[in-house]
């Protein structure tokens, strides 16, 4: 398929029409996605932006309130906790959720047998609906009959409070999140690893390089770009963490797991303050835009 430059189109008025008719099928397929994105992403984003400067009860006319919603959420004692918790969650999710899938991918890539089965097993958690996966962990974390404490008991370690302690609650949520997203990350890394020419490894092996050296000198440099892209995507995704605190801890104990997205939910649906929820959403979006812009830049450089 040939593409016409802007200059060509200006010089040949019929060229644009021909180009459009040639790509009509493609536009048809594209329109479905565009409509979906418009209705479920872009229009809500615009509405949310507007809402953050308004007061509404969805009955009477809306009222423009300037920055009042922002002042309300900035004055909320949970505001700082929510951002700190979100930042810690993101950081921990990077430490665990970013490295673990990479390690899994490297190990899977090194395996000579049963790679297909193991890939399936690693990917299985992704197929579970998130709510089911989270509720499964609710049982794992039960301080009494939960699987984790039973396992700790077998090796003589005293039981942990997991979700019921301010120190372990947030890391416990990170473990859930890591487990749920492990499969996707692993498969993406695996695909990247398998695109590395095998000659490089063979040469390294001939030179006597062990696994660690091969990873350090070949794997990481060869997958540098995908690692960076995944890092940025991970930050954008984990900063929006909601389902884990919503289903497992309700923001507790002592606000230890209140995240920005959870606080947004509280404002909008528990307090009926959609303006406050919108203001929080806009703040989060601005932070994420920075990372997204960086991601786009990296993606563009890569191509």
């Amino acid at each position: 398929m040939t593409t016409l430059s802007a200059k060509d189109r200006r010089q040949h008025p019929g060229a644009l029409r021909r180009s459009v008719s040639r790509n009509l099928t493609a536009y048809g397929f594209l329109s479905g996605a565009l409509i979906c994105f418009a209705f479920f992403s872009w229009i809500p984003m615009v509405r949310e932006f507007i809402l953050s400067f308004q007061k509404t009860n969805f009955v009477n006319s809306t009222e423009w309130v300037g920055l009042e919603n922002f002042r309300t959420v900035l004055d909320d004692p949970a505001f700082i906790s929510a951002w700190v918790n979100t930042a810690i969650f993101t950081l921990l999710a990077l430490v665990f959720g970013y490295i673990v899938p990479f390690v899994f991918a490297v190990v899977l890539n090194e395996l000579r047998h049963a790679q297909g089965y193991l890939r399936l097993i690693v990917y299985l958690p992704v197929m579970l609906p998130p709510a089911v996966a989270v509720l499964l962990f609710k049982w794992f974390y039960d301080p009494g009959a939960g699987l984790f404490n039973q396992a700790l008991g077998v090796v003589g370690i005293p039981p942990l409070s997991w979700l019921d302690s301010t120190t372990t609650a947030l890391p416990s949520l990170v473990i859930v999140s890591t487990w749920m997203n492990l499969g996707t990350g692993t498969l993406i890394y695996l695909a990247a690893l398998q695109s590395i020419p095998s000659e490089l490894y063979e040469a390294a092996e001939l030179d006597g390089a062990g696994l660690f050296k091969r990873v350090w000198h070949i794997t990481i440099p060869q997958t540098r770009l995908i690692l960076l892209v995944m890092l940025l995507l991970q930050i954008v995704a984990t900063m929006q963490v909601f389902i884990e605190p919503f289903l497992l801890t309700g923001g507790g104990p002592e606000n230890a797991t209140v995240t920005v997205a959870y606080l947004m939910y509280q404002y909008a649906f528990s307090f009926g303050n959609f303006g406050g929820g919108g203001a929080l959403g806009l703040m989060l979006m601005l932070v994420l835009i920075v990372f997204s812009a960086f991601y786009l830049r990296v993606s563009r450089d890569r191509t």
Binding site: A78, D164, Q266
Partner: peptide, 12 residues
């Protein structure tokens, strides 16, 4: 929402 904190603190 604010009072959840003392309740959860005492119980955890």
């Amino acid at each position: 929402a604010i009072l959840d904190t003392p309740m959860s603190a005492v119980l955890t």
